[in-house]
Nucleic acid binder design. Structure first.
Length: 507
DNA sequence: TTCCGACAGTGGGGTCGCAAT
DNA sequence: ATTGCGACCCCACTATCGGAA
């Protein structure tokens, strides 16, 4: 029953202790029917078996009154969500809205609350994937490592969890790396500079170009090629250059990890926006590849010639990569234990216009789907002193606190401030409390339900990765990945950085 | 007893496709 | 032709729990 999940979710949200959350989830899983296990695991880890159904925050406004008695089963809900997803074409928005209304009319208030959070993509119960893996392990009475291993190879926890509940360890061992079925890619931690990254790895490190493009996982079985993104979406049709490159390799059973990027004729990278536009365009690919060709840089091999390499150390996987893929398709790499040499390599990468480096431990296996300690990325960081123009009320654990800051640079000609973007990052609870009080006292001008405008007096030091062209902001530029470093009460607005100094970074 | 790895949460800018206006 | 929504590309950072040291 849906009500069982709603109650479990509420209990999970109410217990701060992770072990207690795991206990609640495992208890539910231990009494779920086999044919509904997959749905239950998906919902309670914040996912839908349909993945996306075309319903977002807007469609979830104006929810009808609930009913009094809970009767909905998981299969009924799942069926309705599939019908919603299937609605496409003219009239589909109204049809979806109607079906969403039907869905919410058929459940109680507590179930509505659960479904709202689930469909809105914000479960807010302090448990998603990571906690659910532990809960599955406990409910199925199998080691969590076995669940994680199967998940690595299958990429979809509801399927793995359902198998564990019905078939135990034996069923989990049946999962293998399958060519054509994507594996959750390994992610990197970060460090402020190359020596720090190398120290994290224990000295010896393989440094590779960090390319500012789109992560790709390329599968080939015979002459069949499939290309997947970080979230395991299939983008094969959008990247014909990559398909041809993989088809030209001498091995026909292979899984590679890499990055695609649009390069200019001189070999320097286009801005990320250009690559993103090219890769997400589904029409006119033939013409686009003439004007904006894609290049690929592979940096890992998960399978070569029928052999799974996930558990091998990085150095051996890279050897396999080098022996199968031509050098011009591989991210340049330097193995060194010398921080000085590492810094030189970093400087060279930046001079060529690329984003930074990823330092890798030569000994670590491929930690699929995890932010493994074996990979550490390093990027340069810019900072500016900007002026707070407004602040937005936060959500969730930031409810009642002014959170998201509107940032402006000084325009020396007009004396006005030009907005360059927003940030909510880098703020501690203490800082959130302080700025809420402070900005309410500084409030000025028209404020609405979400935004409190303030007198442009408070200077804040902001770190960011770069400046990009913006179709949205008045100065035509915006900061990428802005985050607060600290407030500068010692500075006045007149001391803040100007739009001219920001524009210089746009080059 | 302290340290630190892993997770969840809180949102950022930009782009596309599609349906509605 | 334009606008709004949903989905997805890139992402940083803090708080917290609980096992490791």
């Amino acid at each position: 029953m849906l009500i069982d999940l709603a109650r479990t979710s509420a209990a999970v949200a109410a217990s701060p202790a992770r072990l207690a959350k795991i206990g609640h989830l495992a208890e539910l899983l231990s009494r779920v029917e086999p044919d509904e296990a997959e749905i239950a695991i998906a919902y309670l880890s914040g996912e839908l078996p349909q993945r996306q159904i075309g319903v977002g925050w807007r469609t979830l406004q104006d929810i009808p009154e609930p009913r009094q008695v809970a009767t909905a089963t998981l299969c009924q809900i799942d069926g309705l969500l599939s019908r919603i997803k299937a609605r496409t074409g003219p009239g589909s928005q109204a049809a979806r809205k109607e079906l969403v209304g039907e869905l919410f009319r058929s459940v109680t208030r507590q179930e509505q609350s659960f479904l709202l959070r689930l469909l809105g993509g914000e479960l807010r119960q302090g448990a998603l994937h990571g906690v659910m893996v532990e809960a599955v392990a406990r409910a199925a009475d199998v080691p969590a490592a076995e669940v994680r291993r199967a998940l690595t190879l299958r990429g979809w926890l509801p399927a793995v969890g359902a198998a564990a509940l019905t078939g135990g360890v034996a069923a989990l061992r049946d999962f293998h790396l399958e060519v054509g079925r994507p594996v959750a890619p390994m992610l990197a931690q970060s460090a402020p500079n190359v020596p720090a990254a190398m120290e994290k790895l224990g000295g010896l490190a393989a440094l590779e170009w960090k390319i500012d493009g789109i992560r790709v996982q390329a599968h080939r079985s015979g002459t069949e090629i499939r290309v997947f993104t970080r979230t395991l979406d299939d983008i094969t049709a959008q990247v014909p250059e990559l398909v041809e490159a993989v088809l030209a390799l001498p091995v026909d059973d292979i899984v590679l990890d890499g990055e695609v990027i649009a390069l200019r004729p001189d070999g320097r990278p286009e801005p990320f926006q250009v690559t993103a536009s090219r890769v997400s365009s589904k029409t006119d690919t033939a013409r686009l590849r003439e004007t904006t060709p894609l290049s690929v840089f592979f940096f890992d091999a998960l399978r070569v010639g029928g052999a799974d390499l996930l558990d091998l150390p990085d150095s051996e996987r890279h050897e396999a990569l080098v022996s199968t893929v031509p050098a011009e398709l591989i991210a340049p790499r330097l193995v060194t234990a010398d921080p000085e040499e590492g810094m030189t390599f970093f400087a060279q990468v930046l001079r060529r216009g690329h984003e930074g480096v990823v330092a890798k431990s030569p000994t670590t296996p491929y930690a699929a789907g995890r932010r493994g300690a074996g990979w550490v990325k390093v990027k340069p960081r810019h900072t500016l002193d900007l002026v707070v123009l407004a602040a937005e009320w936060g959500h969730g654990r930031r409810e009642g606190k002014l959170s998201n800051l509107h940032l402006g640079a000084r325009d020396p000609r007009s004396g006005d401030f030009v907005m360059l973007g927003k940030t909510f990052k880098g703020l501690t609870d203490e800082l959130l409390a302080w700025q809420t009080e402070r900005f309410l006292a500084m409030a000025d001008g028209p404020s609405d339900e979400w935004v409190v405008r303030v007198r442009p007096e408070m200077v804040v030091e902001v770190a960011f990765d770069g400046v990009q062209r913006s179709p949205r902001y008045p100065g035509g530029m915006a900061l990428r990945f802005a985050r607060v470093l600290r407030y500068r009460p010692d500075k006045r607005a007149e001391d803040a950085d100007t739009v001219d100094s920001v524009r210089e970074l746009l080059l």
